[in-house]
Simulated assay, not measured.
Amino acid sequence: MDFDLDNLKTAGLGLGAALSVGLNGWLAFGRTWVRTKASNANDSQQINMLQFLSDQVKELKTENTHLRDEIEERDQRIREYWKTITETESRLQIVESQLEALKQQNESLREELRELVAASTNMSCELARIKNAERMPR
């Protein structure tokens, strides 16, 4: 077997080139595999974060609904309180106006009573004079 140095050099260069291409391919595959693995981990993490945020949104919607119901109940109670207050104010105004009318009527009755007392006193005096006049001979 005759090995020629040129053939050996050519074979060595071919083998070196093949090893270089193989090594570059293996390194490229490794980088791609690591990048894919990191990308998958990142995707999983993003999916988990989205699921977490979705769960939080659901919880906040539930809490929001609950708070809206509470606010509606409070608004209803406030409306009822205002209705009661308005009715009470109306009744109070009626009572106050009736009280004012009764005060005026009472004042009028007092005036009439004074006049009646004065008239009664005058009648008593007049009656006493008439009795005295009858007792006295003329």
Score class of each variant (00 low, 15 high):
62 T>L: 15
53 L>W: 10
123 M>I: 07
104 Q>G: 01
3 F>D: 10
111 E>C: 02
27 L>G: 03
60 L>K: 14
76 Q>C: 04
32 T>Q: 14
74 R>S: 13
52 F>A: 03
48 N>H: 10
32 T>A: 05
68 R>T: 08
14 G>P: 00
104 Q>P: 00
51 Q>H: 10
76 Q>S: 11
30 G>A: 14
3 F>A: 09
91 R>S: 02
104 Q>T: 11
118 A>F: 00
76 Q>P: 01
134 E>F: 05
84 T>M: 11
112 E>P: 00
41 A>R: 14
69 D>W: 00
76 Q>V: 01
14 G>W: 09
84 T>N: 08
106 N>L: 15
53 L>D: 07
107 E>R: 09
33 W>V: 03
130 I>A: 11
104 Q>S: 11
29 F>Y: 07
27 L>D: 03
57 V>E: 15
77 R>G: 01
79 R>W: 01
11 A>W: 11
94 I>G: 05
7 N>T: 06
54 S>F: 10
114 R>P: 00
108 S>T: 05
69 D>R: 02
102 L>P: 01
135 R>D: 13
3 F>H: 12
120 S>D: 03
78 I>P: 01
28 A>D: 06
108 S>G: 07
117 V>I: 13
90 S>W: 15
101 A>Y: 09
108 S>E: 15
133 A>N: 05
49 M>Y: 01
19 L>M: 12
24 N>S: 15
47 I>S: 13
90 S>E: 08
85 I>C: 07
93 Q>N: 06
136 M>N: 11
39 S>D: 08
112 E>M: 03
56 Q>C: 02
10 T>D: 15
79 R>D: 08
25 G>D: 08
92 L>D: 01
118 A>K: 09
35 R>Q: 10
115 E>M: 06
54 S>W: 04
98 Q>H: 06
15 L>V: 14
126 E>G: 02
75 D>N: 04
4 D>F: 01
17 A>G: 15
42 N>V: 04
78 I>L: 15
41 A>Y: 08
138 R>A: 14
30 G>D: 08
128 A>Y: 02
46 Q>L: 15
5 L>R: 11
102 L>Y: 00
81 Y>F: 08
19 L>W: 00
47 I>P: 02
96 E>V: 03
45 Q>E: 09
45 Q>L: 15
124 S>C: 02
110 R>S: 07
23 L>K: 04
22 G>N: 08
12 G>T: 05
120 S>I: 01
60 L>H: 07
104 Q>H: 08
20 S>T: 06
12 G>D: 06
87 E>Y: 07
96 E>N: 05
43 D>G: 05
29 F>C: 00
35 R>N: 10
135 R>E: 14
65 T>E: 13
26 W>D: 03
86 T>D: 09
46 Q>D: 12
91 R>F: 01
104 Q>I: 14
108 S>W: 06
70 E>A: 02
39 S>Q: 14
